[in-house]
Design a binder for these strands. Structure first.
Lengths: 213, 213
DNA sequence: TAGATTGTTAATCGATTAACAATC
DNA sequence: TAGATTGTTAATCGATTAACAATC
C-alpha cells in the first residue's frame, strides 16, 4: 500500500494562518477608506518580508497591479471567499460555563458570520437557563439541533475532563469542524477538522517567551 | 550595520508550541498514574513522528531511558519549569465585557498559575461592578495595580477598535507579555512579547479546512 | 518615459524525518 | 542476553527569502 500523504490538498497551513491575518488588516483598511495596499505594507505590519506576502497571495486567485499594489476592497472580497468568511456558519457551543456563555453571546462572532444556534451543557442545574438570546439545552438534544439547522461548526468550551466527551457528542451530532477552546487534546475521526485555540497553551508560549528575553 | 536576526535565542517557536501540548498530555498521564511514556506514544497522540518528539525533547535538559521511554512525573516537572508553568504569573485582564469577565473568573487559569490581579475597562457604566472576586477598575488605575503587584502578563479582551489602546496602556503600565484575544493586530515595543489567540482567526482557519475537505 | 511594485524562479535556510549506533 | 527505545547524525523535505524580468 502506498504511503498516504498527510494532507496535501490545498495551501500550507502556515499560509492559511497568515491569510487570516491579512484579512483582518485589509478589512480594517477598507473601513478606513484606503484603496491600495502594497506587499511591503502588509509585510511590515506582520513582521514578514514582502516576498513572503507575495508568495502567500500567489496561492489565491487574485492579482495586484504593478505600480500600485493590491486593491483593498477586492483583496478583502477574495480573502473572505477563500477563508469562508463570506458565508454564514451555523455553530453550536458546548459548555455553558463562563467561557461558553461569553462566546455564545459574543457579538463579534455573529457579526463575522458565525451564527450560534445552540448552547449545550450536561449539568442539570444549567439546563433551561436563559443566556442572552439562547436557552441552555442538554447535550442529548444537540444532534436534533445540528440536523435541524444544518450546523457545521462546534465550539468546545468545557473543562478539561469533559472535552473528549463533548467532542464525541459533536461528532455524533454530525458537525464538520470543531474549535477546541478547552485545555485538553481531543481525538476525532479524520474527516472532522479540528483547530485548537487553547488559551493555557498560548499563555505558556507567552511565559516561555517572557522568561527567555 | 549588521543585519539583526529576528529572535535566535532559545528554541524554535514550533518546538515551544509542541512542548505546551506534551505538557498537557503528560500532566494528564500523571493524574492517571502512568509512570512511563515513549516518544512513540507522544507522537501518536499528536499526529507526529517519534523522531520529531525526540528532537523536541532534546532541546530540554532531560533524558529518557533506553528501553522504557520517559518518566512521566519527571518530564512533567521539567516541562513545567521550561515553560514557566511552575511559577505564579500575576496577570491583569483588560476588557470587562462577556469575554473579559469570563476569563477573569475562569478557574482553569488560576489553577494553572495565572493569578488575575485586576480587571479593567474604560466604560464608566462597568467601573466599580463586582465580577466574581474582582471589581472592575478604570484603565487609568492599571499602572498602579501592575506596579503594586508586580504584574507581568496582560490579557486583552476588548473589541477590535480598542485593542491598540489596551495594548498601549498595558505597555505603559509595564507588563512584559501580552496575550491578545481581540480580533485586531496590535503593535508593541520589541521588548514586550505578544501571543495572539484570536478566536475569529482560528475559526477562519477552521472554516477554510472544512471547505477544502 | 522612468520608476515602482508585482509575480515567479532559483537559492537559502530551517524543520522534519530516517537511520542507526548506543544503551538499559 | 536479546530487544526495545533512546539520542544524534545525516538526508530530505518544505518554507522563506533574494533576485530580477515583466509591467503598469
Amino acid at each position: 500500500m502506498p504511503r498516504r500523504k498527510q494532507i496535501t490538498n490545498g495551501m500550507p497551513s502556515t499560509v492559511v494562518r497568515r491569510l487570516t491575518g491579512y484579512l483582518a488588516l485589509v478589512q480594517d483598511l477598507c473601513l478606513r477608506g484606503e484603496e491600495w495596499v502594497s506587499s511591503m505594507e502588509l509585510a511590515e505590519h506582520f513582521g514578514l518580508t514582502s516576498s513572503t506576502v507575495r508568495q502567500d497571495l500567489s496561492h489565491i486567485d487574485f492579482s495586484g497591479i504593478s505600480k500600485k499594489g493590491y486593491e483593498v476592497a477586492k483583496l478583502c472580497d477574495v480573502l473572505r471567499r477563500v477563508l469562508g468568511a463570506d458565508k454564514e456558519w451555523k455553530s453550536v457551543v458546548v459548555g455553558a460555563g463562563n467561557l461558553g456563555t461569553a462566546i455564545a453571546n459574543h457579538g463579534d462572532l455573529e457579526r463575522r458570520g458565525f451564527l450560534i444556534c445552540g448552547l449545550f451543557d450536561i449539568d442539570e442545574k444549567r439546563i433551561g437557563k436563559q443566556e442572552g438570546r439562547l436557552k441552555v439545552s442538554h447535550i442529548r438534544d444537540m444532534e436534533h439541533v445540528v440536523k435541524e439547522n444544518g450546523v457545521e461548526i462546534g465550539i468546545i468550551a468545557v473543562p478539561a475532563k469533559a472535552a473528549q466527551q463533548a467532542a464525541d457528542s459533536l461528532v455524533k451530532a454530525g458537525v464538520s469542524g470543531i474549535l477546541n477552546l478547552s485545555v485538553s487534546h481531543i481525538s476525532v475521526p479524520s474527516d472532522v477538522r479540528v483547530i485548537s485555540a487553547r488559551m493555557v497553551s498560548s499563555l505558556l508560549e507567552l511565559t516561555h517567551a517572557v522568561m527567555s528575553r
